[in-house]
């Protein structure tokens, strides 16, 4: 079943279309990654899905219900970690999570244990009495998450939850997202970090200029979009003529020389990397090292948009 379905979804500001006719399906139980550069429209899309932004055109169904009619029922079952920290800085971590728990209708012992669970989950239980104002950046990020999961939502939106967090805290956040997902929460995750998305997402949607330009599993995206192979070859006695000669071989689409190292891109429909290497060896060229690069989401993004994700 699809937990989110949008159809021709548009968000237009006066002179700017931030989200442009997006058809998106997110399946129940998956971790879905939204990838895109600054200003691609990720947060705007999520804003419409959680009901804080008015939809200009198109329709949104969340948890099988129409957001324009059943928003209160939907909201009970979703959690939202906003891109910007959003809690009461003057309150302690504990009081904050209590506050958000209450807004979701939790009370009494149930509320208390849910709050404890959320704080333990995010590793803040020991610091629960401290005013959140004095937390480090990473702790604030974790509190931002704790406030969104206290009511155990079926569907969790996380808008760049790890910005400005050190690698160790980031790993623990990623780990907890896996755990949440394992316990049945569907997660929508936006990020600039390829590695994060590759580490936790089952499927990925790539956005650019308000459009959803590709959707699929990482493998699908890679095999469907990346038609070329990438390799670096280190050669002894490298010469300018040699580099030029290789560049002229049919199928080689790119060849950049950096002292003894060649950065090569080939079109396997004409010649695969293996065939190229065989050819070089047969010409008795002294190859020192070879590195065939596995294409990643970064490569996918580069291929689709012609730019790096983080410029």
């Amino acid at each position: 079943m699809n937990i989110i379905e949008t159809s021709k979804l548009v968000k237009r500001y006066k002179n700017h279309t931030a989200v442009d006719r997006i058809d998106l399906d997110v399946r129940e139980g998956e971790v879905f990654g939204l990838l895109g550069p600054n200003g691609a429209g990720k947060s705007t899309l999520i804003g419409m899905l959680v009901g804080t932004l008015k939809v200009t055109e198109g329709s949104v169904r969340v948890l099988g219900k129409d957001i324009s009619r059943d928003s209160t029922a939907i909201k009970q079952d979703i959690g939202y970690v906003p891109q910007d920290l959003a809690f009461f800085e003057k309150l302690s971590a504990y009081d904050n999570v209590i506050y958000w728990g209450r807004l979701y209708g939790l009370e009494g012992p149930e509320l208390k244990s849910a709050v404890q669970e959320a704080l333990e989950f995010t590793g803040l239980w020991d610091r629960r009495k401290d005013t959140s104002e004095n937390f480090s950046g990473g702790m604030k990020r974790r509190l931002n998450i704790a406030c969104a999961i206290v009511h155990k939502p079926k569907l969790l939106f996380m808008d760049e939850p790890t910005v400005g967090v050190d690698p160790q805290s980031r790993n623990s956040i990623l780990e907890s997202i896996r755990k949440l997902n394992h316990n049945g929460t569907t997660v929508i995750y936006t990020s600039h970090y390829m590695e994060e998305v590759e580490a936790i997402c089952d499927r990925v949607g790539i956005m650019d200029f308000g459009k959803l330009i590709a959707v699929g599993t990482i493998d699908q995206l890679v095999t469907e979009t990346v038609k070329e192979e990438f390799a670096t070859i280190e050669i002894n006695n490298m010469s300018l003529q040699l580099a030029e000669a290789i560049k002229r071989i049919p199928g080689v689409t790119r060849c950049e020389r950096n002292q003894n190292v060649l950065d090569i891109q080939v079109n396997p429909a004409i010649m695969s990397t293996i065939q190229l290497l065989e050819m070089l060896i047969s010409k008795r060229i002294d190859i020192q090292a070879i590195n065939v690069e596995k294409p990643t989401l970064e490569t996918v993004f580069l291929t689709l948009t012609g730019k790096k994700l983080r410029d």
């Binding site: 804080t52 939202y80 958000w100």
Partner: peptide, 13 residues
């Protein structure tokens, strides 16, 4: 503090 828009993602109308 963005708390306002966040509150509106909860069942509180």
């Amino acid at each position: 503090s963005r708390v306002y828009s966040r509150i509106l993602t909860t069942p509180t109308t």
